[in-house]
Amino acid sequence: MKEIKTIVVNRSAYADNDEEANLLREYLKDHGTFLVNLMSSPGAGKTTTLTALINLLKKDYRIGVMEADIDSDVDALSISKNTGVKSIQIHTSGMCHLDAGMTKSGLDSIDISDLDLVFLENVGNLVCPAEFDTGASMDMMILSIPEGDDKPLKYPLVFEKCDLVLINKIDAIDYFDFDMEKCKKTILMRNPNATIIEISAKTGKNINQVVNYFHKKLNSWRAD
């Protein structure tokens, strides 16, 4: 029998994914395609918000959407029907998040050669998607009023990672015990650089502010 030896690895479990994600960011930069990773709980309004946002952004950018779900293609169908932009569904085969490898396969199948801006709608979940770097150019999330103002305390990592936090369903705030100031304070404690915008995807309130945010973000990314 051969001798057993020890190989010291000392490497993060996320190391290979982080490398792939950095390569993907460079690849996107070379192609001039800005990739947005959108995260939230199930039912926070990702698809409705994206629909409202894309309808205002599509005259300025060629947009694509990748919908990640464990199963079904209802979101991809809904986006393409309501916005007319190119959309595909990525199935994660039971996985609760996307990693950089899955994101790259998605980008290959949507074909980014004619796209300026791609939204990746991650699996509805506040824990796992935050752990894996997808290789996106920016991360954003949606927190909705019915979920409660304590979510940034319970799921700190996703709030720490996101450049943009949208607080959705503000048209329903009167019906819930949601302390807006407390919530914003907690988010900024976790992430002092976060931009927070209160919106209602249903009524369209403040979606124009999000549109302006993206114009600025894309301009500075292109100039960088």
Binding site: M1, K2, E3, I4, K5, T6, I7, V8, V9, N10, R11, S12, A13, Y14
Partner: peptide, 11 residues
């Protein structure tokens, strides 16, 4: 917070 691969024993 990390998940770290320390070492492996192989033959």
């Amino acid at each position: 917070r990390d998940v770290y691969i320390k070492d492996v024993k192989v033959d």
